[in-house]
């Protein structure tokens, strides 16, 4: 049993989950409103686009690469989908947007993957270029203005709830239907990463590139798969966010890439590859949502909020490092050398 407990505590995700709960309760003590169903649903709602982008970036990070172009992909694909559909006189719902944006997002990100794979460049370098290109494209070729002209079918999307709750203050709210997309993506990514040969390839490539190549994996191929998934999920995040906010934004998510990558890293994903899990990503995203939004409930002076969030992140990383050292010291080395020194 203590062994089981140790293994449980050894899981980064378990600790993170505990921290999220503790922080939530602390905020709840200061402001009861935070622990209402409406707030929980609202935080989940706010986490949706970040969770999708986080899940998308996960395979890329597992490979040991860093991409930041995904936010640009989200902005461009949603805006292009809207422009095309608007010109066609489309009046339907989110389906048409997804149908255009998803393949387009996958294609653009695939291009980033191919360029870095073929020319042996770090994805980060190529994605910097694409980040600029995509936002530049939006501003120059499509529209430098926000577009509020939603088709009829999309207008009511923001309040499509799975479960409705009646909150005394904010009125009718609920669990937004888009969490289904996140769940679907999370399960799909989890199955791929855990149970398919190609999914394990991301971990092997991130753990030891030479082993992966010797085992028969192709880096360029893996990179392309990872980037295509990344682009598709970013596009989905973009469309959902625009539909939810009720305007299409040429600079959608600009700057949010840092929050996404921070959330994923908080979830236990290694920036140098080989480590990371779907659950970790989801928890990391929720963690960031809780601390960034919880500060409003705590009544922290708004000009201080970024500073406080930054401090909390640094403290969090120090704590996890300390825990890793502590556990490392407790469990020590296993196997043949285990008996030594006792």
């Amino acid at each position: 049993m203590p062994n089981f407990a140790r293994r449980l505590l050894g899981r980064h995700e378990v600790i993170l989950f505990g921290i999220v709960i503790v922080i939530s309760i602390v905020i709840g003590v200061f402001n009861r409103a935070f622990l209402s169903l409406a707030t929980i649903f609202e935080i989940l709602r706010g986490a949706i686009p970040f969770a999708l982008m986080g899940l998308g970036i996960l395979p890329v990070l597992l490979l040991g690469e860093v991409d930041i172009s995904f936010v640009g992909v989200a902005a461009t694909t949603s805006l292009v989908a809207h422009t095309l559909l608007h010109d066609m006189g489309y009046a339907g719902g989110i389906g048409g947007y997804i149908l255009i944006a998803l393949p387009l997002g996958a294609a653009i990100a695939l291009m980033v993957g191919l360029i870095s794979g073929v020319f042996r460049l770090p994805v980060f370098a190529v994605s910097l270029g694409f980040w600029l290109m995509l936002y530049g494209f939006n501003l120059f070729f499509i529209s430098p203005e926000m577009r509020f002209d939603l088709p009829e079918g999309l207008v009511g999307f923001y309040n499509h709830f799975l479960i409705k709750v009646q909150d005394p203050i904010v009125g009718e709210t609920g669990l937004h239907v888009a969490v289904v997309y996140v769940l679907f993506a999370a399960v799909a990514i989890w199955v791929v990463l855990r149970h398919t040969v190609i999914g394990r390839g991301f971990y092997i490539m991130g753990g030891n590139r030479e082993v992966a190549v010797r085992t028969g994996y192709n880096l360029v191929k893996l990179l392309c798969v990872a980037m295509a998934v990344n682009g598709a999920l970013a596009a989905l995040a973009g469309v959902l966010q625009c539909a939810y906010k009720r305007f299409f934004d040429p600079i959608l998510f600009r700057g949010a890439e840092l929050y996404v990558i921070a959330a994923v890293v908080i979830g236990g994903t290694s920036i140098t590859g080989g480590r990371g899990s779907v659950i970790g990503v989801l928890l990391g995203v929720i963690f960031v949502q809780v601390i960034t939004r919880g500060l409003i409930y705590l009544g922290v002076e708004p000009t201080w909020q970024q500073f406080v969030v930054g401090c909390m992140l640094v403290i969090f990383f120090i704590l996890t490092s300390l825990r890793a050292r502590l556990l490392g010291g407790l469990s020590g080395r296993s196997g043949l050398t285990r008996g030594e020194g006792k």
């Binding site: 209402s36 203050i169 934004d249 409003i296 409930y297």
Partner: peptide, 17 residues
Amino acid sequence: ESKETEAYTVMKDLLKA
């Protein structure tokens, strides 16, 4: 701070808080 496009989210939290 609304970060230009986040007023909606911030307002929701403010209403509750």
